[in-house]
Design a protein around this nucleic acid. Sequence first.
DNA 1: CTGTTAGCGCCTTCAA
DNA 2: TTGAAGGCGCTAACAG
Lengths: 305, 305
Amino acid sequence: MDAIESLGYIPSQTARIFKSGKSYILGLVISQSHISHIMFNAGFQAQFKALTEKAHKEGYNILLITSAEGDSESYFEVIKNQVADGFIIFSPSHNDGLTSLLEEAEIPYVFNMKYSDKPEDHYYVSSDDVEGGFIAGKYLLDLNHTDIRFLVGNVKGGYLPFNADRIKGFKKALDMYHVPFREEMIVKVQGQMNESYNGIHMLFQTERPTALMISNEITTVAALNYFTDNGYRVPRDVSVIGFGPSEFFRSLRPNLTNVSYDISWASAKLVDLLLQRIEGKPVTIEMPKKPELIIRDSTARNMAR
Amino acid sequence: MDAIESLGYIPSQTARIFKSGKSYILGLVISQSHISHIMFNAGFQAQFKALTEKAHKEGYNILLITSAEGDSESYFEVIKNQVADGFIIFSPSHNDGLTSLLEEAEIPYVFNMKYSDKPEDHYYVSSDDVEGGFIAGKYLLDLNHTDIRFLVGNVKGGYLPFNADRIKGFKKALDMYHVPFREEMIVKVQGQMNESYNGIHMLFQTERPTALMISNEITTVAALNYFTDNGYRVPRDVSVIGFGPSEFFRSLRPNLTNVSYDISWASAKLVDLLLQRIEGKPVTIEMPKKPELIIRDSTARNMAR
DNA sequence: CTGTTAGCGCCTTCAA
DNA sequence: TTGAAGGCGCTAACAG
């Protein structure tokens, strides 16, 4: 003990990890190109914060692993060359092949969200996005809106499963009120500020919907800015519903009506899920928590007809 | 090679690190309580993104290390138990003792910003904050404002060195125009949304400054929201200058006049500095880049007197 | 209860 | 050119 003190001996963590095979590191894998899109989104910030907090609580730290490319091979390449007990994967798209590569290599992993509809890929904690789309749509229909647009993220011309689910819920609501669904109700928009702004500009050049559902926080801010810049009043001229952390939407003016779910709960569950996989325990699949509609000041009854 | 392929052999990264003594990991140390305050600030997001990108470019990944407490001992405890080639330290306050502990243990580190005025602690990349405070103050004085308030972050009743520098620059501008400095011109405000909002509310209960300089992005948003909620028009009733990434201030309405500096350059330099220390090379101290005043729509000539 | 040692998996050095 | 072995620093197992 004297010697430790006087020599300033510090045990080598590297050797400890080497010997024990445990690093108490959770890798968060994200593609380099994706990181900018994600870093400025309120939902990701909340998820990231919650992930970090939960990991800390469980004695883990988060290693941010950046992959140059977003495809399965690059992801796998980067993952297998990393020291971590398990991986949380933020995928820019569907990444079909990745799961089998990881399974084969027996690397524990989870996804930050639903990327696939295959039941065997159930290594994520979902919110009930069908329900989310449904309650948003239903609320607008209740307010007498029928000319609704749902703005979703454009990923290589398509959209991610969680948006597919929200759309499904939206259609369900339309069905319930016997309002026919039209393809142009779904508007694919890039998630960054300028691209979103331009997308909304394009939309309002030719059309004049009375209500918007917006699946991305940055796009939501872009929309509000567009309305401010062009003299549209929210909610008098357009009603707007956002999807994401309720906290964030309270910092906007007007305070936004939004569909929100408990991201800090979901993030904690996701870490639990990963830790279970790391320890080789049987995995308990969580029922998705129902999202909630928080009604604030950006939605109003449609008086147009 | 056949065997590698057929057995699915993956070299152990842990063993490699153990053997080589290089992990290609950069630890980013942050206190648990601080993380929420920081995660939602546009400046940090930009810095974090830039750090990640630069690290990736240099072949490193970022390990997010969370310390429960923010004091020097806790930081050191957590740092020494981590596998990383060097550390980037986000300190919640001054952390006097930390540098000597790290020096003694010969652990390479840099700070994300200036925490100390001691020249021997020059392991950070600074912006020229004196200049930043000066150009903001001068511009407002040029616009005939004299009743200016500078809102800075409240850290245990005081403020951090970069804010002290900005205040110094502000005073310099006042001096130049022979406007006497008054203590109440400096307003210490908590950096979170609600606390900021309340702080601004308190300020405007008793006073009616014609211009605000705001050192924190969230506080800036809170101020704009307060003005919206209470019928103050920006810039007609109050002029506002923000400090932070210009990009961010362009997403606000009105577009904000702001003092901005090249955070992605600074972050890259910071990583370079850390890598130099890791490699034991002599350290090149960068001259701070001059911040720039970006004039937009939130500042107007004071007509009051 | 204290003290010694084997071995984790890699890489570099040295020998054949 | 190919092959064998030592040692990084720790910890767990085992011997005294």
